[in-house]
Amino acid sequence: MSTAVLSIAHPTPGQAAWRRFRRHRLALAGAVIILVLVVGSTFGPYLLPFDDTYIDVMKRFAPPLSGAHLLGTDELGRDVLARLMMGGRISLAIGIVAMVIAMAVGIVVGAFAGFYGGVVGAVLMRLVDAVLCFPSIFLLLALAALTEPGLVTTTVLIAATAWMGVARVVEAQVRSLRERDFAIAAIAFGSSNLRIMFRELVPNAMAPIVVAATLNVAKAILLESYVSYLGYGIQPPAASWGNMLNNAQIYLTSAPWLAIAPGVAITLAVTSFNFLGDGLRDALDPRMNIP
């Protein structure tokens, strides 16, 4: 009951935000492209007559549009389009799931640190600082060595290098929000701390969180390709945009389409998520200034 009355400072913030977002044409374009990529990767493979892992060494390196294969075939004679779609599933899933994990960890750590402050806050935020001291490459390589490479571990690894930024944003927001009237009122009403934190304070910090989330998806997709480049990541024969791009490296001069297809896919997806984040930032809080 307190939420409804107290937390809504603006009468129709949602509509206003939507209006501002719609004006941001690039963000809208980004959202549409993301939708296309997601739908394409999800349903596309069912429409293709080719299996993404079926090898036919007699048909290696068929150029695009030269036959049944729209985007040509790769170094093992597999259909590039099928692999691109299946790779999209993995890369987008990694990006989104890694973001969700990073968000969850970051929000919890940030909320606790910001709400309790004092020793708890200091310890938690110093932990964040400590992890930020590690070059993310070190974290990735060292953690990768500890686990078997694969879909789950790659996702967790990427999340492990991304939650600190969120924690910082949330901590700052929660710290300032908890001094506001509605939080003080909620405390007066006798709500539990957890309830105040996650029902009152965090939702009010949603704007920067949402922006950070979209940008994190972009970062995670890009990181997946770096992890592949450094020799970890998704194991063959499964495709990801990152390992496709990495495998195409040595054929850059002889079969450039192998590198162009995943390269364009990554750039397109990452750019779109970045634009989306940009648009959301303008829409949700025009004055906000987070990178």
Binding site: A218, L222, L245, A259, I266, A269, F275
Partner: peptide, 24 residues
């Protein structure tokens, strides 16, 4: 607009890929 789009694309291209293309 061009600067914004350009910057976003620049931030989205994997560096190793860009470097290899530049060398080529």
């Amino acid at each position: 607009t061009l600067a914004t789009v350009g910057a976003m694309i620049a931030l989205s291209i994997p560096t190793f890929w860009f470097g290899l293309v530049a060398i080529y």
